[in-house]
């Protein structure tokens, strides 16, 4: 909940500024839009953008990794054989879900 706790510090400050010492503040045109009590603090937004970017990297990394390894063909990349997905004839899902080796053949030739 870093999102909300960080706004907690900044938003009231903005509010105090807006209302000032005047007990009956004059409401400027566009008050609620431009300088609203819930106006967004650019610093907070920058901070959030950074966090979101890190998160986005985590979200996309496995997919990007898959794409990148499938594009490499040389040795040293063990992840994916060129035939596409790493379906090893024996030991993958289709095979181990049934010990009969026939399934291996099916997936091996896929």
């Amino acid at each position: 909940m870093s999102v909300t706790s960080s706004t907690a510090k900044t938003a009231p400050a903005a509010m105090v500024k807006a209302t000032g010492g005047d007990p009956r503040p004059a409401i400027a045109p566009g008050f609620f839009k431009a300088k609203g009590a819930t106006r967004e603090n650019p610093l907070v937004n920058a901070f959030l953008t950074a966090i979101l970017a890190v998160g986005a990297v985590i979200m996309a990394a496995p997919l990007l990794w898959m794409v990148s390894t499938s594009l490499k063909t040389k040795e040293g990349v063990y992840a994916l054989p060129r035939s596409g997905f790493p379906i090893r004839s024996c030991g993958t899902r289709t095979c181990a879900s049934s010990t009969t080796p026939t399934c291996c053949r099916a997936s091996g030739t896929r």
């Binding site: 870093s2 999102v3 909300t4 967004e40 937004n45 959030l48 953008t49 979101l52 979200m59």
Partner: peptide
Amino acid sequence: LGLALALSRKIRGRTFFRTVYYIP
């Protein structure tokens, strides 16, 4: 929920972020 709160703000590239988080 944290993501939604963050992405409902006017953050640069939020459409991009929403897409990336939704791809899986």
